[in-house]
């Protein structure tokens, strides 16, 4: 009996923090892991503003790669002029750009585009 009482008391003490930190009601959980974000610098290879498609040449040394991206809401041609950065309609092949994007199930989605001035070192 004594053992049962002790066990119950100990369990109650251990459970107190969980009880008092529990939410009053279940709320939809915000994602704990933000979507992975990436920054690419490269040359516009192809852009199709109506479909929101952007291909960028990037790479390391002579090992070049083509990165395919899709326009997010902020850079779509129908979007109001963004407060910072450019829309897809502002781009043409050959432009050197910096693109901020995030990986989604549908691929890389662009959130912000800016044209680059060539940096010196």
């Amino acid at each position: 009996m004594l053992r049962t009482t002790r066990t119950a008391a100990l369990s109650a003490i251990l459970l107190i923090p969980l009880v008092i930190s529990a939410p009053a009601a279940r709320q939809p959980q915000a994602p704990t892991q933000p979507a992975a974000s990436y920054t690419y610098r490269g040359t516009v290879h192809a852009v199709n503003a109506p479909t929101g498609s952007l291909d960028l040449v990037t790479g390391v040394g002579m090992s070049l790669r083509l990165v395919h991206l899709t326009a997010g809401p902020a850079v779509r041609s129908s979007a109001a002029a963004p407060t910072a950065g450019l829309r897809m309609t502002d781009l043409k092949p050959g432009d050197v750009v910096r693109v901020e994007c995030r990986r989604t199930n549908a691929g890389l989605v662009v959130d912000r585009i800016e044209k680059l001035e060539a940096p010196a070192r």
């Binding site: 390391v60 090992s63 680059l116």
Partner: peptide
């Protein structure tokens, strides 16, 4: 010349690549 991201190039017969480290890393793959 300038690399695809706008930096001044110097390595390679067409001076495309800006730095030695990038040229070497790219050469391993290419």
């Amino acid at each position: 010349n300038r690399f695809v991201d706008g930096r001044i190039g110097r390595f390679g017969r067409k001076a495309l690549v800006p730095t030695l480290a990038e040229f070497n890393a790219g050469a391993f793959v290419a």
